Amino acid sequence: MPEVIFPGPEGRLEGRYHPQKDRDAPIAIVLHPHPQFGGTMNNKIVYNLHYAFYNMGFTVLRFNFRGVGRSQGEYDQGIGELSDAASALDYLQSMNNNSKHCWVAGFSFGAWIGMQLLMRRPEITGFISVSPPANMYDFSFLAPCPASGLIINGGADRVAPPADTTTLVSKLQEQKGITVTHDEVPGAGHFFSEGDQMENMIGTVSDYVKRRLTETSR
């Protein structure tokens, strides 16, 4: 999988780009957790999401937000990171002009950024939000949420408590025209790090995305 460097708002951004042979392949970007708490594109959940999408036939890009790894710039409270994500999507689209489907996936802080990107980019057809920190960040900008997607969290998450995630999902499910699916992995913490929790979470994500792709191809 080639390492790539592409232009961002504050200089270069470092990524991993995994293209399919099929020129019409759907595309996805994967966004990593909080840069100030050790979040990088090599986070285990981000890595596993990346390969899950690739194995389903997507051309995939994950990258480091500004100030992480070889990406230039400094942490910017989510504002600059949203611009980074937009630049990453621009880069991915520039090399995949024929793609009919565009997905965004994010973990924790990356889920918050991904949902904001969803509001800005009408071409995004689906989203995956893993462990969205609804207790720390305001998600009220999702009014209305423009695309259907999956929110998945751990039942024993102490970083982003399940009750806050359930409240967020309930608000989104009231909206017409889209379907927000919610799944909770029993006993899992924020990082799905015990036993087969990671496998279960990735399996749920894959089943959901495959179902959506089947529905849209009819």
Rank of each mutant, 00 (worst) to 15 (best):
G11H: 15
R12G: 15
L13N: 05
E14L: 13
E14S: 13
G15V: 05
R16Y: 09
P19Y: 03
P19F: 00
Q20L: 06
Q20W: 05
K21I: 10
D22F: 01
D22W: 01
D24L: 15
A25V: 06
P26E: 04
P26N: 05
I27A: 05
A28T: 09
I29W: 01
I29K: 02
I29V: 14
V30C: 10
V30W: 02
P33Y: 00
H34M: 08
H34R: 06
P35I: 07
P35A: 10
Q36Y: 00
G38W: 00
G39E: 00
T40D: 03
N42C: 04
N43T: 06
K44I: 12
V46F: 01
Y47M: 05
N48M: 02
N48D: 04
L49Q: 07
H50L: 05
Y51N: 02
M56C: 14
F58Q: 04
T59W: 00
T59P: 03
F63W: 06
F65I: 13
F65H: 14
F65S: 13
G67C: 13
V68D: 01
G69H: 04
G69R: 02
S71H: 08
Q72F: 15
Y75W: 07
G78E: 02
G78Y: 01
G78V: 00
I79A: 15
G80E: 05
G80I: 04
E81F: 11
E81S: 11
L82R: 09
L82P: 11
D84S: 06
D84T: 05
A86K: 11
L89R: 05
Q93M: 11
Q93L: 10
Q93G: 10
S94I: 01
M95C: 05
M95S: 06
N96R: 06
H101S: 10
H101F: 09
C102H: 07
C102I: 14
C102G: 08
C102V: 13
V104P: 13
A105V: 12
G106Q: 12
G106I: 11
S108Y: 02
S108Q: 02
F109A: 12
F109L: 12
G110M: 08
A111Y: 11
W112I: 15
I113T: 13
M115P: 03
Q116F: 07
L117K: 15
M119N: 07
R120A: 15
R120D: 15
P122D: 11
E123T: 14
T125L: 00
G126L: 04
F127G: 07
F127R: 07
S129W: 08
V130T: 06
S131K: 04
S131A: 13
A134T: 14
F139K: 09
S140K: 00
A143M: 11
P146F: 01
A147N: 00
S148M: 01
G149M: 02
G149L: 01
L150P: 11
I151C: 15
I151M: 13
A156K: 09
